[in-house]
Amino acid sequence: MNRTDSSLIALRRILRATELFGRELAKGSGLTPVQFRVLQVVAETGRSTPKDISVRMGVSQPTITSLIDKLVDRGAVRRQQSETDRRQTNILITELGQSMIDDSPDPLQQRYVRKFEALEDWEQVQLISSLERVAAMLDASDIDASPVLAVGDIKKTP
């Protein structure tokens, strides 16, 4: 097998793993991986603003607003007007949202994070450089993407 085919197979395995995990998560919790990550961010901080979530996840605020709307509709989070700034809205996790996190399978990206952080510094830098090069080769450097292993439209509901 030549190197080009080997590289394409590796890319396909990554895409397939994210697709399979997305299906597993949707089946177990009814959430997309990106919705699940928004829920995790809110749970980790206790309360977040849409702007804080968008900055942390590296996606636009309208994208986060759409994701929050879906989570509110599902009863996983709720909006609360800030007591200190009436223009600001806080996002809080509900008991249902917390149980969705607790009952969900181990997120694929959490597995990746654990293994990536166990790598030596030089290996991390090399891997980031290689992945950034692959994104550039696919003309994907400017695509709106969050640090969530997911396929498809990040605003999409499963």
Rank of each mutant, 00 (worst) to 15 (best):
T18W: 03
T89W: 08
E83A: 10
G97P: 01
I128G: 12
D52N: 07
E19S: 13
A136L: 00
M57N: 03
V55L: 10
S146R: 07
Q88N: 03
V148R: 04
R3G: 09
I9M: 14
Q35N: 03
W122I: 09
M57G: 04
R87N: 12
Q88S: 03
T84I: 13
L39M: 03
L138V: 03
D69A: 09
D52Q: 13
L92D: 07
R3S: 13
I154W: 05
D73A: 15
R133Q: 09
L96W: 10
L127I: 14
L67I: 03
S129C: 09
S146F: 04
S141I: 04
R3M: 11
D102K: 11
A43S: 14
R47S: 06
E120K: 05
V148K: 04
V113R: 15
K155L: 06
D69G: 09
V125M: 05
I64M: 00
W122L: 10
S29N: 07
A43D: 10
E83W: 04
T49A: 05
G30M: 02
A136F: 01
T45G: 07
I101T: 00
V151Y: 01
I91F: 04
A136W: 02
I143K: 11
I143R: 11
T49Q: 09
S54C: 01
P147N: 06
S60H: 04
L92F: 10
L11S: 06
P147C: 02
T94M: 01
F116K: 00
V34T: 15
D142M: 12
R13F: 12
S54A: 08
R86K: 13
E123S: 09
P147R: 09
L67K: 02
I14Y: 11
G97T: 00
M100F: 15
L20T: 15
L67F: 01
V148E: 02
L71Y: 00
Q81W: 00
F36H: 15
I64C: 00
P107V: 05
V125F: 09
D5A: 11
K51V: 08
G22E: 06
Q124R: 15
D103S: 14
L131V: 02
E120S: 05
D85W: 00
K27G: 15
I154P: 10
R133V: 05
T63M: 02
K27M: 14
T65R: 13
Q61N: 13
R111G: 12
R87W: 06
R79Q: 05
L92T: 10
G46S: 04
P33D: 02
A135D: 06
L138F: 05
L127V: 12
R78F: 09
R114H: 12
Q80V: 10
E19C: 09
E83D: 11
Q109S: 01
R78G: 07
L25A: 08
D106I: 12
E24D: 10
F36W: 10
R56M: 06
V77M: 02
P147W: 11
L8C: 10
N2I: 14
E44Y: 02
Q81L: 02
L20H: 15
R16D: 11
M100L: 15
A26D: 04
